[in-house]
Design a protein around this nucleic acid. Sequence first.
DNA 1: ACATTGTGGAAGTGCTTGCTTACATTACAA
DNA 2: TTGTAATGTAAGCAAGCACTTCCACAATGT
Lengths: 216, 216
Amino acid sequence: MGRPSTLEDKRREFLPIVAGAFAELGYRRLTSAELAARCGVGENVLYRIWPDKHAMFLAALEWVYLASERTWERLLAEPGNGESAFLRLLSHEARHLGEYGLHRIVFAGLSETDDPRIRAALQDLYAKFHAFVRRQLSAHRVAGAPGGLDAETAAWAIIGLGTVANVGRELGSIGASRRESILWDAGRLVAEGRIDAEADGPPRKKRASAEKKRRK
Amino acid sequence: MGRPSTLEDKRREFLPIVAGAFAELGYRRLTSAELAARCGVGENVLYRIWPDKHAMFLAALEWVYLASERTWERLLAEPGNGESAFLRLLSHEARHLGEYGLHRIVFAGLSETDDPRIRAALQDLYAKFHAFVRRQLSAHRVAGAPGGLDAETAAWAIIGLGTVANVGRELGSIGASRRESILWDAGRLVAEGRIDAEADGPPRKKRASAEKKRRK
DNA sequence: ACATTGTGGAAGTGCTTGCTTACATTACAA
DNA sequence: TTGTAATGTAAGCAAGCACTTCCACAATGT
C-alpha cells in the first residue's frame, strides 16, 4: 500500500556527489544547502536519507575508501607481467594520486576528531588502509624481495609518503616528477630496504603517450 | 598626548594562547567568543589587534612554526656528543612529536585552502620546513653518512613520516614504540639509504627514567 | 585641571546554517 | 475510484557566528 520508497536508490545515486563535495570543501564549509543543490534536490530529501550532516560525512568517508580500494583491487587483478602486485600498486599511485579525494576527506575529518563517531570511522579507515598496504607488502616480500624494515613500520611509512605527496600536490609545493620520486624511489626504499641502482623510475605503460590525463 | 597603546604587548601575550586554541579546535570550530574567553578579554580586544579571524589564524600559523623551529635550533646547538645534528633531531622528534601542535594547525589550514592568504602561508610554511630538513640532511651526509635518495626527495619523505606519526598518535592508531620505529628506523633508512644493522633504536638520554612526560 | 587617547565589558547586528514543517502532487494497492 | 504513503518545493525557525557599537573609565601630555 502506498508509494514504494526510492530512498535506497537515491542514497546510491547521491553518495559519489556527497563524497566529492566533502572532499572539495571539507566538513564545515560544505553547507547542507550547497550539498542539496549539488544533488539537485531540496535539503529535506537529504535529511530523509541520512539523519544529520555527520551521517552524510560518515557515509562519504566509507564510500570514498571503498572506491579507492576497489580501484586497487582491480589494478591488482590485472595480469602482472612479471612485476609484483605491490610494485604495480606503487607505480600506479605514483602517477594517479588520490583520484577519489580520499586524503582530502580524511583531512577534513581530522579537524573533527572530537566527534566520537567521526573519530572511530577514521581509526577504522586507517586500520583498513594500513592492513591493505601491509598485506601487499608482505606478498611482495614473500615473492622474493629482500625487505629491511619490519612490515608494520614500512606500511605506515608508505602511507606517510602518500600523504606528503598529496599535501604537496594540493598546495602546489611538490611537482609531478618530485611526487613520483617520493612515492617510487622512497617507497621502494622503504619497502625493500635498499636502493636498487638499476631501475630508476616507475615502469611506464607501453606507450608514453598516455601522459595527458584528466586533471580537473 | 593620550594613553600609550599596549596592543603590541597583548599581541605577544595572546599569540601562544591563540595558536594553542587553533591547534586544539581547528579553524571553524574555534569561535571568536571562545578565543576571547581563553585570552581573558572581550572579543573587541582581539579585533583591535587583528583585523579578522583569518589574520589571527595566520599569526598563529607563523608563531607555531617559529616556536617549533626555535626548539630544533636549540636542540642542534646542544653539544652533540659524536652524533650528527640530524640524527639527534630525528631521535628527538621520535619521542617528542609535535609538541607545539604544528601539524594540527596545518591540518586545520588544509581544510581552508581556498583562501589565498592561508594557502600562501601554508606553502611558505612547508617550504621553510622542507628547507630546514633538507639542510640538516645535507649536513648529515657531508659529515660522512652515505645517502642513497636524492636529498630533496628524502626531505619530503621524512616530513611524510612525521605526518603519519602525528596522525597515528592523534587517532590512537599508532602506539609510542611504533611511532619511534617509523621516525627512527624508516627515517634513517630514508636519510642514509640503507639499513644500519648495528644500532636498533634511537639513543636515549642518559637516564631512561625521563619517560613520564606531560601528555595532556 | 583638562583635553585626548586607549581600554575592557556587555549588548547588539545582520547573516549563515543545520534542520524542520507544511503542503500540494504523484504513484502505488485495493 | 479511493485510501495510503512517498515525493519535491518552498518557506520557516532557532541557534550560532564574525564582527561592531556603545560607554564608563583609566592613563597620559600640557
